[in-house]
Write a protein that binds this DNA or RNA. Sequence first.
DNA 1: AATAAAAAGGGGAATTTTCCCCATGCAGAT
DNA 2: ATCTGCATGGGGAAAATTCCCCTTTTTATT
Lengths: 213, 213
Amino acid sequence: MISVALVDDHKLLRSGLSNFIKTDPGFQVLFEADNGLDLQEKIKSGKVPDVILMDINMPLMDGYEATRWLHTHQPKVKVIALSMYDGEECIIRMLRSGARGYLLKDAEPAELTRAIQETHQNGFYYTPMVTRHIASLINDTESDKKATPGLTEREMELLQYMASELTYKEIADKMFLSPKTIEGHREKMCDKLQLKTRVGLVMYAIKNGIVKV
Amino acid sequence: MISVALVDDHKLLRSGLSNFIKTDPGFQVLFEADNGLDLQEKIKSGKVPDVILMDINMPLMDGYEATRWLHTHQPKVKVIALSMYDGEECIIRMLRSGARGYLLKDAEPAELTRAIQETHQNGFYYTPMVTRHIASLINDTESDKKATPGLTEREMELLQYMASELTYKEIADKMFLSPKTIEGHREKMCDKLQLKTRVGLVMYAIKNGIVKV
DNA sequence: AATAAAAAGGGGAATTTTCCCCATGCAGAT
DNA sequence: ATCTGCATGGGGAAAATTCCCCTTTTTATT
């Protein structure tokens, strides 16, 4: 019997999923949580599941942070990320945070069942889509790093402001920096991601869950 | 026994929801559909549910179009919109398309149950959030129209391009218009929505499901 | 100790966006 | 018949963005 926990702020999805998982006699749902913080509390109170299905975009504490915390504090717990977005920034960030699998929310139910089983038995489950990214991560022994997107923390912080109606001058004031620095960061991000404009960056940030809608 | 159909391209959410609904003895799930087109086929083949839970953003045919089609072809079927976004553009468009209710995907499961029952019995179910918008729709007898967002079809079409990295000149070429026309449309949209920049428009379009991510 | 990457900042010019003004033609409603 | 909203298009100026070039300091890795 594999014990599973669900972490997602969409209660409807969560309880639906919970019902679905319970129909399989091989699984039990140990608990559900609204977000990363809620999950932490439940883990700390002694309830430790085998597998966690983890949403990425959640209030208070998101899936990346929660997964990193689990990775250090409960390394035996296997996290499967559950996301709406297939942007590679998401996937790679989540895998780097310690996730053992990555499923889209429009996956077939049968794939979820399989993912839980395989992750529990083998320690990982990679859907074909993810495998492509893994490949590009491994190829990247040291030669071409362009395959890894890798925005820095600072850059992602900046993206929050880029997705607003603030000018560079106004962003600079808020961050206590020079407008030229803001612009420099934008230019570097555009270079890395092969984008041209602020709108392109904003769309990328949303596709990758860096900026929440 | 109320018969329900689910229309959503997120299969995991859908089958989870299906399981949840089936646990209530007062409901049965007549069928599930991937999108509006799929729904049409199933309705045409003779399966007509009492209530439909309808996602908005779907491939091939979205929730607005599907709801309008139902409104004219199967007016007895009551549609409850199920969305991730609470932008008022979404809500009002969906209600105008003929939806009898509007639920967010992070609603409590109990609210879904209640929404299905009330919609079936009374013909509608408005969550408090929606009621506020209804009020502003009704207030708007003819005095202040600023409460209604109402972008035109043309404007929404334009928003697709605005969310790309194209310049106004390039958009104009694609649409066989003058750059000044594109700019004029942007200005009008910004006026209506009280926004200032293209980025603001793009964010609005995404929050309201006009541009898909 | 050396190299590389991230973060901060700048100059200057070209391009684009934004913000005012404006006009015309057309469709539907009163 | 007139009025309103929508789509179309324009002029001109100010502001912002984008695109090159460049420097310094800090931090991490080898």
